[in-house]
């Protein structure tokens, strides 16, 4: 199962586009499994450093997670207003407080990320970023996302057990090895 929408500059990414491995997560901010996966992703990022780029796309299952859509919209609003660093502060704040995702909580996390909570909640109420979230979701469905979290390593769905950090890390390392055989460092340096 392969990713149909390639990673672009419009995606939220941590790490360099030149990294040999891109780990992409389709996630839902209210999904408890995504909450459990968050520290696993952080551990992989710590372990692989510059060799790993992490990308997050929204896949809110709003019928079973009624607060997931507002959380995703709030994170997108913070990104649109204050940039990627602020997005990631918001992303981490949401997963750190996943059991409190009412709008007033989202406002607190937005403030802690450096955003004006009133403006962010105004965007949420107006649905300013719903289209972006829905586009993420639709692209995920077409790529074979079958629940949350679903991970892709260099565009291939990772069907292993993400809860097993060592197994997940081994898959990342394999992806890094394969990719380094295809992308010469000198070529990589010329890419954006």
């Amino acid at each position: 199962m392969s990713l149909r929408l390639p990673v672009t500059a419009a995606d939220h990414a941590l790490g360099s586009a030149d990294a040999p491995v891109t780990l992409l997560e389709y996630g839902d901010y209210q999904c408890p499994f995504c909450g459990r996966a968050h520290p696993i992703v952080e551990a992989l990022r710590a372990r692989f450093g510059d060799r790993l780029r992490f990308v997050f796309r929204n896949f809110p299952l709003t019928e079973i997670h009624p607060q997931a859509l507002h959380a995703a919209q709030a994170a997108e609003s913070v990104a649109a207003r204050h940039g990627e660093d602020a997005f990631w502060r918001m992303h981490h704040a949401i997963f750190a407080h996943q059991k409190a995702l009412l709008d007033r909580h989202l406002g607190e996390y937005a403030a802690s990320a450096g955003a004006d909570p009133g403006a962010v909640l105004g965007d949420v109420a107006a649905g300013a970023h719903v289209a972006r979230v829905e586009a993420d979701f639709a692209g995920g469905v077409r790529s074979g996302v079958n629940g949350t979290p679903t991970f892709f390593l260099n565009g291939e769905r990772f069907d292993g057990d993400w809860r097993d950090l060592e197994g997940f890390a081994a898959a990342v390392a394999r992806a890094a090895g394969e990719a380094s055989g295809h992308v010469h460092p000198a070529q990589a340096a010329h890419r954006e």
């Binding site: 709003t62 019928e63 639709a138 469905v141």
Partner: peptide
């Protein structure tokens, strides 16, 4: 549950 929850969410498509 995951599969039916997913299809529920994809119903508009």
């Amino acid at each position: 549950g995951d599969q039916m929850a997913l299809y529920n969410q994809v119903l508009p498509a």
